[in-house]
Write a protein that binds this DNA or RNA. Sequence first.
DNA 1: CCCGCAGAGTCAACGGCGTTGACCCTTGAG
DNA 2: CTCAAGGGTCAACGCCGTTGACTCTGCGGG
Lengths: 203, 203
Amino acid sequence: MPYGCGVTKTSAERAQPTAEDRLRPAGRATRSAIEAAARTLFAEHGFDGASVRGIAAEAGVDPALVIRHFGSKEALFLRTLDRSLGVGKVIDGPLETVGRRLVAYLIDTDNASIRGRFVAIARGSHLAQVRDEMVRHTAEAYIAPLAPRLDGEDREVRVALVAAQVAGLLNLLFLQEDPVLSTAAPETLVALYGDAIQQLLTP
Amino acid sequence: MPYGCGVTKTSAERAQPTAEDRLRPAGRATRSAIEAAARTLFAEHGFDGASVRGIAAEAGVDPALVIRHFGSKEALFLRTLDRSLGVGKVIDGPLETVGRRLVAYLIDTDNASIRGRFVAIARGSHLAQVRDEMVRHTAEAYIAPLAPRLDGEDREVRVALVAAQVAGLLNLLFLQEDPVLSTAAPETLVALYGDAIQQLLTP
DNA sequence: CCCGCAGAGTCAACGGCGTTGACCCTTGAG
DNA sequence: CTCAAGGGTCAACGCCGTTGACTCTGCGGG
């Protein structure tokens, strides 16, 4: 470790001024314009369907600038990606009703952003880093808060299987747009699938 | 219709001689070489990950020939696609044990082709025709044989939710390669997830 | 004050992609 | 033998993500 330098720096000022902190206003503006355009187009067309040139055009910017600012299309995608589906509050609630509340939250038609976030993630799942994020999300959003609260054996496996059930439901609803599930009454889905989930948590 | 020619053809010979029937042997050979290469590369890298040029190279053939024979990359993908996961026999068995037998069949490590088939389908799910195939497969392979045998209400919805559970399990196992599920004992998965599926069929 | 430097943006180009059109060689029916 | 049509080759098109060389701008330090 050759650096450290013996300089008695009294404090590190802010968290980390490592990068992106000293940007001129113009830089910030175009950066966020690119991010906004990327968020829109990735959610609409997925990773492969959206093009860097298209994002640049939407942001009113040269395609080279997109790469210049974010390094690569994949890095931009990862930065733009919403990691979470926001299930935290639901999962922290009473354990005996997590199943039904989880389904009710996921298929809530008022919360259209769940669809967009899931589609963007699923359509980018061939990227290794996206897969890693999904695994991390399963561990942090489902297993970590839920497994310690369970009784019985195989707690982590049971929670991971709940995550599988969630993924499957969103898959048929939002990716395949299965007509049977799309036209079913929400309360029917909540009751049936919620109980199937619940069985893995409190059998 | 200028042809037909008044020839009193006594029978239509085989089913339909509409096309691809009068092919020279060489044509057949390269066609099937391309199909084999496509099957391999699509299963390995998905639709976007596999390139026409790569498939052509694997088949020892000019890239233009691939398009010439199949029309487009998407058409080749659809023709190459295995529509079915082969769950028919499992589903036709005794209703009371479908859940566990289904999971046991899907995660059977001896049947590696299930993984390849699922990955190819899932990675091509942004194509409208692939989505349609998936919906059709849910209807034909799950709902049609299973729903009439159920008791109670919402039979079709319940079977569609079983399909969702299956999709979710394969998703975490084969796409995300979730470490918790990948390292779990198969019999644990069969018992836990099998029963969660069974609950929707015979509650 | 001006110099220099780094951030911001422009432009042309690279190699790879799916696809097309023009062009040959081969073959088998009339 | 003739000749259309199937099988195959080749160069090229337009799009893609990305790069490198270039200019312009604004600001801190000599």
